[in-house]
Every structure is written in C-alpha cells, then in structure tokens.
Design a protein around this nucleic acid. Structure first.
Lengths: 144, 144
DNA sequence: TAAGTTTGCTTGCATATTGCAAGTGTAAAG
DNA sequence: CTTTACACTTGCAATATGCAAGCAAACTTA
C-alpha cells in the first residue's frame, strides 16, 4: 500500500486518511471490545476480512501508531497486536457510532445492553473503559 | 455502484457500510459546517473529489437517507442537497473525530477555535448545533 | 526426531473501485 | 441566439479489493 499523503489539513480528512475505510475500525473494535490480539483472531471476525487485506490494514495501523506488534507471551509463532493510547482514544468516536447505529438500525441484544449502559453517562463510561484499557497497556509495558 | 449488503449486524460494521470511506463524511462535513448544498460546492472542497466519485457518493448518501435532493430555489439548473435528521445525528461522531484529531494532529486555527468551544460543553454544543440544523430542515419543509 | 499442525503472513490473479479528463444535456445569462 | 453555468456521464488507466493457494517458521504429537 502506497504511503498515503494528506488530502488537506482538515481534521476530518486527516482522520479518514487513517481509518476511513471499511476495515480499520473493525480491527480496533475487535481489540477494544473483544480482546482480540492476534492475526488469527481478526480473521475469525464475522465480517470475513481477506487475509491480504488484514495484513495491509495491520501494517497501516502500525504505521499510524494505532497498534504495536509485540512478541506473544505464549509462543514465538504468534504475534501480539496491541492498541496504543492513540487507538484507545478512538473509543469516544466508536461509542458515538454505536449510539448513532442504535438510533437507526436494529442492534444485537448484547451490544444494545452495552450501549444502554454507556448512554447513562457517556463520559464516565468512556473514562472507565479507557482507564481499564490503558492500564493493560502499562502493565504489559512494565513487565517487559 | 452495487447495492451493498451488510457484512454483519455489528453496529460499527453497518455504519461503516454506509459512511466508511474516504469521501462520504467529508460531504456531510461540508453540509454541516460550511453550508454547502450543491454539486459544484462539493467539487470545490480542498480535498479535490473526482466528479464521478462525487456523483456516486451523493447517490449512496441519498439511498441511505442521509441526504435529499431538492429543487434549488434560485434556479432549475441547480440541485439543492439537504441533510436529513439522520445525517445531522452524525454530528456527535464528527465532533469526536475533531477532538481526536485535535489531540494527535496539528489543526488549522479557525477549526481549533471551534473545537475549543465545543470542548467546554460537548452535549450543549451538539444540542445547540443540532437544533439549529434541524430548524433549517423544518423551515424548508414547511415552506414547500 | 520425524511428521503433521498452527500461525502469520505472501503471491497470483480476477474483479471492483477510484481517479482523471473529456463530453453531454438542460437551464440561465448576455 | 450564442455563451456560460451546472450537474452530471462516459471512457479508460491505475489502484485496491477479494479469493484461493502457497509458504516458512514455530510448535505439537508420536
């Protein structure tokens, strides 16, 4: 994939240059909400990403510092993909997408429950989940 | 453009099926923040969308009920594109993208000012702007 | 230790999407 | 009645996507 240059300095445009496609945010979603962390995990997601596309998206996310590739504690054959704080900070965006979707689509019950919870106090929900996620990041960092 | 079918029933996935590309949200941005409303307006945006892509995105947005095509009051040669409430409800998402971009990129000063204003009280900012935008929608509706 | 198996990719190729430039039809302006 | 404005459409080359197969390194099993 060619190194994408900025189309403009509009913040929306710059952001879309990074995650404005059909797959990148799904990978982030899998990591944020479903604790997925390996190549195989992402391939298994119900949207069915093609393996070459997954590889190219992971590379793009890494180049944009949204994820990091690390040694997997279980095996050298595995790779551990980990969210950076920059990616964790996408949570408010992803939450708002959930809320929008909840208003205009039919949402699976389990996710609907999460959304309902989040709606009670968005700021608190984001803050708590962010703290939780960033704690994991730091824990792993300090134990390396 | 082929009628896109849902990849899964995940709210993020469904949402990305609609606006998960490099252009759709920029059109929405132009309408939300810069009062653009015609084909020519969108073509002029600094990102430089190709005319055929613009046509296909406008069609997609219309199919997904994010915009409506109306007669332009000034001229029959023009077409007036108008946001639906469904699109106006994307504002929280677009605001959060702004906030994220503000944290990780260098943002133009004028937009930075808007972001600063919005950050003071997100809910209030969204509510006020939404109200303003939806008022316009209703005004035009009642005068047709 | 040899023979699978798992894992994380890469490669090849068909198809779809994008981007660029030029063209078209209708409406308005001069 | 000619020119310009406006909203597209068309043709085509370049790029991206999707699918299936292949592959090497690490791991498991016997």
């Amino acid at each position: 994939m060619k190194k994408s240059q900025k189309r403009s300095n509009c913040p929306i445009s710059c952001s879309l240059d990074i995650f404005g496609d059909k797959w990148s945010l799904l990978i982030i979603r899998d990591m944020l909400f479903f604790q997925k962390s390996t190549y195989g995990d992402f391939l298994k997601s119900s949207e069915g990403i093609a393996t070459n596309i997954l590889a190219s998206r992971l590379l793009g996310l890494e180049e944009n510092k949204l994820i990091e590739k690390l040694e997997h504690p279980d095996s050298k054959a595995k790779v551990l993909y980990k969210l950076t704080p920059k990616a964790i900070d996408l949570l408010p965006i992803i939450l708002e997408i959930h809320l929008w979707a909840d208003k205009y689509f039919t949402i699976p019950a389990d996710i609907k429950a999460m959304i309902k919870e989040a709606k009670k106090d968005k700021e608190a929900f984001v803050k708590m989940m962010t703290k939780e996620l960033k704690k994991q990041v730091d824990t792993e960092k300090s134990s390396s």
